[in-house]
Design a protein around this nucleic acid. Structure first.
Lengths: 263, 263
DNA sequence: TACTATGTTTCAAATAGTGAAACGCCAGTT
DNA sequence: AACTGGCGTTTCACTATTTGAAACATAGTA
């Protein structure tokens, strides 16, 4: 593994919950030796990827990512495009809609719009979502390489409810179904009473890089699913894809324009 | 120079104008050998810092910077804090106010609020500002290391008006004055008819990382400067500094609370 | 004062980075 | 079809950078 990659790996630990670390904390988290971590941190510091706060002896994200994000958003305004699609879709369906993208091996929720209904699902922004127990995670996995699927699912997976599927073979079968349908469904898999439908979207390399998901109380899911507005959801996913210069792969169903509904 | 830093250096070339590059373009820009650049790009790719677009054979900024920027803004909302100070200051002075920060060796304007007066200065957001011919640039330089000053000023500097100073020794004298006063002044240096005053602000390492600047038609500058509301401007700069967890250095004048006015 | 937890420095050993050159591929030209 | 130039890819011997362990420094605490 290259030095550059090892250094960049340190950045993976920073998130909204834990946004700054001391040297020793990163030593523990990364498993690298102290000298290694220190050297990397100094390099990242000089490259403006992180900042050092001398009063607390901790490191946090620096200004360079801000600049780079600005550059990226300036030429391909993904965040704006996605926020827009999520808002539209939520407005049309009057259910909560959220969008997750995969970064650094995790799925992160980067956009949410809540339903206006009294009984609705409220999802925190920036949260990590489990691969195997969310419609979004499965939607992405279904259009990922076999190797990646194995890497992610081939470990002991946590069970959240009695409906969480943790067996790799059952999960693989689920993925096959999702590949055929083009969307995934989660009923009470992550938390009892919450159900959702997700459609993946793709990056320029035609890899699934995120998913749009409609999420609601399970009590409303039956009627919703029986006349699933998959066209609407798909259209949003395609728009999000094209706005970020991505491309749906040939293997995606509905290339033949025939969309499969419920069951 | 470490490998990590050399790899990160490639990211410096990406900006709003030129947001994607082929391998060879980066070879030319960086002066590195082809093998080197390629290796670095692959590492950055795997670290999600960049994306590869196979249809154009070019690289552009990836998703990781987006994530990191989000993390940073979530814990220290710099952009929001600065926008706020710029708005306040502009409102109080009724002149255009803007804020620049230094990223990757350049000064970028990241926040602007226009004066409400008919005759006012309108500045584009995201523009690069020259180090030697702007109040902001000089304000930052005055509180930067000698080595950095030399690196930046020790090349042939463009002349914008007959008032642009391009001689390094004259510029250095200017910097000394700014160090004593805590603010910098630009009269017609970048464009005839535009004058401004700038105060630097600082990051946690007490390095000048940006500047707040009040800018107006030169015709109003005399009266303005004769009773310069430096306290107001300084207070805004200090607030911007503290909100981003930064710290003014000991060497900054006014630690003794005595503020020097005009001339 | 001693103790502990943290960050810093050092240096020989070894791993990972390096540049040059050869290679393969594609598109445009003759 | 053969030639050409431009670009990305692969390879490999050489060596410079990275590495880990251990000693050192410093700050906070009992």
């Amino acid at each position: 593994m290259s030095t550059v990659l090892k250094a960049l790996h340190l950045l993976d630990f920073f998130d909204e919950q834990t946004s700054s670390f001391s040297l020793n904390e990163l030593v523990t988290l990364s498993g690298y030796t102290k000298s290694k971590v220190r050297r990397y941190l100094l390099d990242l510091l000089e490259g403006n990827m992180i900042e050092y706060c001398s009063s607390t002896n901790t490191y946090r994200i620096g200004l360079m990512p801000l600049r780079l994000a600005k550059v990226r958003e300036a030429c391909t305004p993904m965040q704006a495009a996605i926020d827009n699609e999520v808002r539209n879709l939520s407005h049309k369906l009057n259910e909560s809609v959220h969008c997750c993208i995969e970064i650094g091996g995790h799925i992160l929720r980067i956009s949410v719009v809540q339903s206006k209904k009294k009984n609705r699902i409220v999802l925190p922004l920036g949260e990590k979502v489990p691969w195997h127990a969310s419609a979004s995670g499965l939607a992405i996995l279904a259009f990922s390489s076999e190797e990646k699927v194995l890497r992610i699912l081939n470990k002991s997976l946590p069970s959240f409810t009695e409906y969480t599927v943790t067996d790799i073979n059952t999960l693989k079968e689920k993925l096959t179904v999702i590949q055929q349908r083009g969307y995934s469904v989660s009923e009470n898999m992550l938390e009892n009473g919450i159900s959702s439908v997700a459609v993946p979207f793709f990056n320029p390399q035609q890899q699934a890089c995120g998913a749009l998901s409609v999420v609601m109380p399970s009590i409303r899911f039956g009627p919703f699913y029986s006349q699933l507005p998959i066209d609407l959801i798909l259209r949003s996913a395609k728009k999000a894809t094209s706005l970020t210069l991505g491309q749906f792969p040939k293997c995606f169903p509905g290339h033949n324009k025939q969309v499969l509904y419920a069951n």
